[in-house]
Amino acid sequence: MVRMLLLAIVLASIAPASGRWHDLAQGISNGAIFLLFLLNGLRLPRHEVARGIGHWRFLLPLVIWCFGAMALTGKGFAILGAGVLPPVVALGFLYLGALPSTVQSATAYSSLAGGNVANSVISAALLNVMGVFISVPIISLLGGGAQLELGVNGLTKVFLVLILPFTIGQLLQDRLHGWITGHKYLVTWMDRISIAIAVYVAFSGAVAQGLWTVVGPDQWAILLVLVIGFLLFGFVGAWLLAKLLGLHRPDRIAFQFAGAHKSVAMGAPLAAVLFPPAVAGMVLLPLLAYHLLQLVASAPLAKRYAAHAPGD
Rank of each mutant, 00 (worst) to 15 (best):
Leu226Ile: 09
Gly83His: 09
Ser298Val: 01
Arg252Pro: 02
Asp218Cys: 06
Arg46Ser: 14
Ala125Lys: 02
Asn30Gln: 13
Ala309Thr: 02
Gln104Arg: 07
Tyr95Thr: 07
His47Asp: 15
Tyr305Phe: 14
Pro16Met: 11
Ala306Pro: 00
Leu231Trp: 07
Leu245Tyr: 01
Leu231His: 12
Glu149His: 05
Val283Pro: 05
Leu127Met: 12
Ala78Thr: 06
Thr213Asn: 06
Ala113Tyr: 00
Val103Glu: 08
Ile222Gln: 03
Leu7Met: 12
Gly114Met: 04
Ile139Ala: 05
Leu164Cys: 13
Gly76Ala: 10
Phe67His: 05
Ala17Phe: 14
Ser111Arg: 10
Gly31Gln: 09
Val283Asn: 04
Val63Thr: 12
Thr107His: 02
Ala124Met: 06
Leu11His: 00
Asn119Glu: 11
Ser101Phe: 05
Leu245Met: 14
Trp189Asp: 10
Tyr290His: 00
Ala268Leu: 07
Ala113Phe: 00
Ser120Thr: 06
Gly210Asn: 03
Asn153Trp: 00
Thr107Val: 15
Ser101Asp: 11
Ala69Asn: 04
Gln256His: 02
His55Cys: 11
Leu241Met: 11
Pro276Ser: 13
Ala8Trp: 10
Met282Tyr: 15
Pro137Lys: 03
Gly267Val: 09
Ile64Gln: 02
Leu112Ala: 13
Ile195Pro: 08
Ala124Phe: 04
Val264Asp: 01
Ala15Tyr: 13
Val161Cys: 00
Leu287Glu: 00
Ser263Gln: 07
Ala302His: 02
Pro269Phe: 02
Val152Glu: 06
Pro277Cys: 08
Val273Ser: 08
Ser13Tyr: 10
Val279His: 05
Lys184Gln: 14
Ala82Val: 04
Ile228Ala: 15
Leu60Pro: 05
Gly259Asp: 09
Glu149Ile: 01
Met190Cys: 14
Leu85Phe: 08
Pro45Asn: 05
Gln173Phe: 11
Tyr95Lys: 01
Tyr305Ser: 01
Leu171Lys: 13
Asn30Glu: 11
Arg192Pro: 01
Ala98His: 01
Gly178Val: 10
Ala272Asp: 11
Gly154Cys: 02
Gln209Met: 07
Ala108Tyr: 02
Leu223Gln: 09
Arg57Ser: 15
Gly114Leu: 03
Val214Tyr: 02
Gly131Glu: 12
Ile180Trp: 08
Leu162Met: 13
Ala98Gly: 03
Arg51His: 12
Leu148Gln: 04
Val264Phe: 04
Ala113Leu: 04
Val236Leu: 14
Pro165Ser: 08
Pro269Val: 06
Val161Asp: 01
Ala106Gln: 05
Phe67Cys: 10
Phe203Thr: 05
Val136Ser: 11
Val49Arg: 00
Trp212Cys: 04
His55Asn: 15
Leu91Asn: 09
Ile33Thr: 15
Ala50Asp: 06
Arg252Lys: 14
Ala82Thr: 10
Gly178Arg: 13
Gly114Glu: 06
Leu148Gly: 04
Leu285Thr: 00
Ala69Phe: 14
Gln219Trp: 03
Leu155Trp: 15
Ala196Lys: 07
Arg3Phe: 13
Ser263Ala: 13
Val121Glu: 02
Asp312Asn: 15
Phe37Val: 08
Ala221Pro: 03
Gln219Cys: 06
Leu160Asp: 05
Leu176Gly: 09
Ser120Leu: 06
Arg175Leu: 12
Val88His: 09
Leu42Glu: 10
Leu155Lys: 08
Ala307Leu: 11
Trp239Ile: 00
Pro45Glu: 11
Tyr185Val: 15
Ile138Phe: 01
Ser111Cys: 05
Leu35Cys: 12
